[in-house]
């Protein structure tokens, strides 16, 4: 018995080592949570195109998780060739901590390095029993709001800023009132998951909460995967243009000799095929003319602020999400 177990383990070990030595070119894309389905399609398309152009076959590996946690892993040595994270601040953090990404990375690709954008919408239970129409309703008593933790999740930071932008418009810039308004929303949150996908499963699978605040693409995907019978999407009157950027990690790709393929991979995101795939997976393409019209029709028109209205991530990140920042003040017990 033990011998056969040993033999099986040995065979497994040998096959793994063999697989390790016969490696073709491999790219590692470290991404955030809601891009899983998009990049699965996109990687297949890119690999086919790359090989058709006469290059050796390329295998693309994916790693998904909360954007902040993923950035942390790259800082700690996760060997990403490209990072496709939820917000620029996380890529800035990698650039600052490791120097493997140049500080001016965001100017290196078109559209602020954002080949696709998204926005923040609400997912509610079918028929909208709590009658949730806009951000005001999230601050109402008796409404349970599901949103991830802005400390670890990029999507959650977009959620927070969108709520803040609405508050600013409503209270005409009276910061104390805005902070109180956002605090009331967060007091309605029974759980703060670490990532956007975790929050979605909390709301959808475990049935917690009355409204999920999240990525538009994540909300549509939940509808697509789990059927339209359970949920409705509610678009608030004002939201934020969520810009998830992409960047090459020259410090890693250069060492591995994968820089050419990695660059081509990112460029392909801006190509018509990449844009169409993004739209198909409910991301708003930066070149809508390349996407299928029926995909574009699904995106509701709404007022969008951008992170630039907050002075960019360099200002917004420490102000709202840094240690002792606005979010920490809001979450302080007894407030």
């Amino acid at each position: 018995m033990r011998n056969s177990v040993k033999a099986a383990l040995f065979a497994a070990a040998v096959s793994i080592l063999a697989a390790g030595t016969a490696r073709s070119e491999t790219l590692l894309n470290v991404s955030y949570d809601p891009t899983r389905e998009f990049y699965r399609d996109f990687n297949t398309a890119f690999a086919a195109k790359w090989q058709a152009e006469g290059h050796p076959p390329v295998a693309i590996r994916m790693s998904h998780g909360g954007s902040g946690a993923q950035a942390r892993a790259v800082v700690d040595g996760l060997d990403a060739d490209v990072v496709t994270l939820a917000l620029a601040a996380d890529i800035d953090a990698i650039a600052r901590a490791t120097g493997r990404i140049p500080a001016d990375w965001q100017g290196m690709l078109p559209d602020n390095s954002c080949p696709y954008t998204s926005t923040i919408v609400f997912l509610v239970r079918k028929g909208n029993p709590k009658n949730i129409r806009d951000w005001d309703d999230l601050a109402r008593e008796g409404v349970a709001v599901v949103t991830p933790n802005p400390k670890t999740s990029g999507g959650a930071r977009w959620n927070f800023l969108a709520a803040w932008a609405y508050g600013e418009k409503k209270f005409g810039g009276d910061e104390a009132k805005v902070q109180d308004f956002v605090a009331r929303i967060y007091r309605n949150a029974p759980v703060l998951d670490t990532g956007a996908r975790g929050a979605t499963t909390t709301f959808v699978q475990r049935g917690i909460g009355d409204v999920l605040v999240g990525w538009e693409n994540e909300a549509y995907l939940a509808l697509e995967q789990l059927g339209p019978d359970g949920f409705d999407i509610v678009t608030p009157s004002l939201s934020i243009k969520a810009e998830p950027p992409v960047a090459l990690v020259p410090g890693n790709a250069g060492r591995k000799g994968t820089e050419e393929a990695a660059r081509a991979y990112l460029d392909f995101l801006y190509a018509p095929a990449g844009q169409a795939l993004a739209a198909k997976h409910y991301f708003r393409p930066s070149h809508p003319e390349d996407a299928a019209p029926e995909d574009l029709k699904r995106f509701a028109r709404l007022d969008l602020v951008t992170v630039a209205d907050f002075g960019g991530w360099a200002k917004a990140q420490p102000r709202f999400f840094g240690d002792g920042g606005v979010f920490d003040q809001i979450m302080k017990p007894g407030e």
Binding site: A73, V75, D76, G77, D79, A97
Partner: peptide, 25 residues
């Protein structure tokens, strides 16, 4: 991660020698 990560005590030396410890087998 703290010992072998690239911000860790042994990480820089290991990555200079092409040895992956964390995020690998």
């Amino acid at each position: 991660v703290l010992i072998f990560g690239s911000q860790g005590a042994l990480g820089p030396w290991l990555s200079d020698h092409g040895i992956d410890v964390v995020f690998a087998v």
